[in-house]
Write a protein that binds this DNA or RNA. Structure first.
Lengths: 348, 348
DNA sequence: AGGGTCGATGCAAACGTTTCCACAGGTCAG
DNA sequence: CTGACCTGTGGAAACGTTTGCATCGACCCT
């Protein structure tokens, strides 16, 4: 037997297909008795509605797409975690597009996958889209929300990277540091990633405001991983003579890599070297890392809830809606400055 | 305008719907000219086929479900990465079910999500299913492959956890250690997770074979994270008098946590304490961690390729196939013993 | 030249729901 | 007592493809 269809349920319950459909999907105008009948018959037959048929007829997919650069990195997997939990609870599916570094793959995801009228909404994390690309996406009339990346014309959840980076740097300056290095992210790694630039700008702004010069050789970049930063920090800290007294790393992972490198050289953190990170990685606690905590998981959950609300309220997606498309809000997600034990006054 | 449908393309190209469909999906029996005509018209209109309609009519979804316990952990995100890349290249979508610890969610994923005739296949990672659950899944006639978990009746990719754990332990024993502690995974954390037990069994077997006694207080468990293991290892290593000379951790993350704790106590690795892990975490390199390398990403990719092959070869999924369901193969994925610098002979 | 083949094409029937519309009774107010 | 209205129900038309089947030339072979 092919799996039971709604027709089988209708026959068994002695009702029409239409009534069964209404009963099972909890619609109004069904008598209690019919509802029970339908439910019982469905249970007995193990009926599960066909998703495709249902979506095709109703125009709703119960499916949200999530585009991330690299599932392997802490920030992104945290966001995925938050999105996933929210969607699962709401009965939505999550389609994951882990685009990675490959530009061709990025292109194919945008062109082939996202447009297939199969997603009710899209969440894009740290993805910078060209105007044409955004237009293309909006043309399918699906709500989009961006996390941590600017999506002109779409809603966004983000933190003010430049300002927070400035705050972090000012924390070091406030402690008395002037010889501060900055560990930024590889620019060429991913063109969809303007975050390193923003944080670096914040760093430079704070330094300039304090009248400190920024040595070019003290601005190095790594790949956002602990191990990558570790390697770079080793070279940075190798020369004992002229060594920075503090490092601001553009992510907690890279800050941790820096701490590990410092330990290898016998440098004590924070007595010999202050290190400050940014993100709120769970591992930061082990290292007593001072950082700016951004709740990545919460950002993901918020994005999902925002979309769910839009989808729930609106009519069929893809249909002309009575209410105008919800205004593209640009929310700043709250952060928390977390002073632990990796920063202190510079050595005398 | 509602987005262009195949009908619009057909009109524009001056062809029938049927021919356009065949042309665009690369089927045989279409003249080169028609194919070009159809393609051109489709491009001009920005036509993207409706996935639901296509799936409904053809029975193929081009969508694979992936169930993981926790996207946040290294092993799982590595697997996801591998699966994702393989599927994306093949033009398949990946639906992610990050079930987490919540048994209710696990239940709803199994019952509500997986059965909706919407997935061509399912990959389950470290998920232990009851017989009834497997039966339920197989009833929808979708191929399943399990990674790192035993799925009776389905294909499996796994490593021999017990044997490898034994090998790791024997490495320590071979170096001369007899006071060996084992850091295992929390059992209650996830009932779908028999891996800790297997690795622990391997450890005990090796110890027994060597005639070494296993102190109960030297078998402690943590949550598989660096920070969790760090906390546990601190208590384990706190008492200077009777301290193990080596630790076998059930994962690299926990091994790293152990190394960090050891360093906190001024213990040198490997001179004062040998540590061996298991998994092949990228971070292991930074710590010179001796471990057994299992290519998690590769396992994910392999699983995806296996499924793609089955799907490509077979007829419509969900249909009675001429060939019998492919035999449930149980493959052991190759591993590599990676001796680095975290293990040495015990201190005298 | 005629029958047979074969490639290219179009028609229309699925696929399995949701939902619009019509309709039957029953209730209620005037 | 009658018309207006509401509730519950079923018939049937979407939804937008894929694909089996029939058709129609063109081409080849004897």
């Amino acid at each position: 037997m092919g799996l039971a269809g709604i027709k089988d349920v209708a026959d068994r319950a002695g009702l029409s297909i239409a009534t069964v459909s209404r009963a099972l999907s909890g619609k109004a105008n069904v008598s209690t008795k019919s509802r029970q009948l339908a439910q019982a018959a469905a249970d007995e037959l193990g009926f599960v509605p066909s998703y495709h048929a249902s979506s095709l007829a109703s125009g709703r997919n119960h499916n949200v797409g999530l585009v991330v650069p690299s599932i392997h990195r802490w920030y992104f997997s945290s966001v995925v975690d938050g999105v996933s939990a929210a969607l699962l609870d709401a009965g939505y599916d999550l389609t994951l597009y882990n685009v990675g570094d490959d530009p061709a793959r990025r292109q194919s995801v945008l062109a082939d996958f996202l447009l297939r009228k199969r997603l009710d909404a899209v969440i894009a994390v740290s993805l910078v889209l060209s105007e044409a690309e955004i237009k293309q996406l909006l043309a399918v009339r699906r709500p989009i929300v961006g996390i941590g990346g600017a999506l002109a014309g779409a809603s966004t959840i983000r933190i003010d990277d430049a300002r927070l980076a400035r705050t972090a740097t000012e924390h070091l300056i406030g402690l008395g540091h002037s010889r501060i290095a900055h560990l930024t992210g590889d620019a060429e790694l991913n063109r969809d990633f303007k975050l390193p630039g923003l944080r670096q700008a914040g760093f430079e702004a704070a330094m300039a405001a304090a009248g400190h010069t920024v040595r070019p050789e003290w601005q190095v970049s790594a790949d956002f991983t602990i191990q990558g930063a570790y390697a770079r920090a080793r070279s940075l800290l190798a020369t004992a003579s002229e060594r920075p007294t503090a490092v601001f790393a553009a992510s907690d992972e890279m800050a941790i890599g820096t701490i590990l490198a410092a330990r290898d050289f016998g440098l004590r953190v924070p007595q010999d070297l202050s290190v400050i990170g940014m993100d709120g990685h769970e591992l930061g606690e082990v290292f007593g890392l001072t950082t700016i905590n951004q709740d990545a998981r919460g950002q993901g959950a918020l994005a999902a809830h925002m979309l769910l609300e839009t989808l729930g309220a609106g009519a069929k997606p893809g249909t002309k809606r009575t209410t105008p498309a919800p205004a593209a809000t640009d929310r700043e997600y709250p952060t928390e400055f977390l002073v632990r034990s990796s920063t202190a006054v510079p050595p005398v």
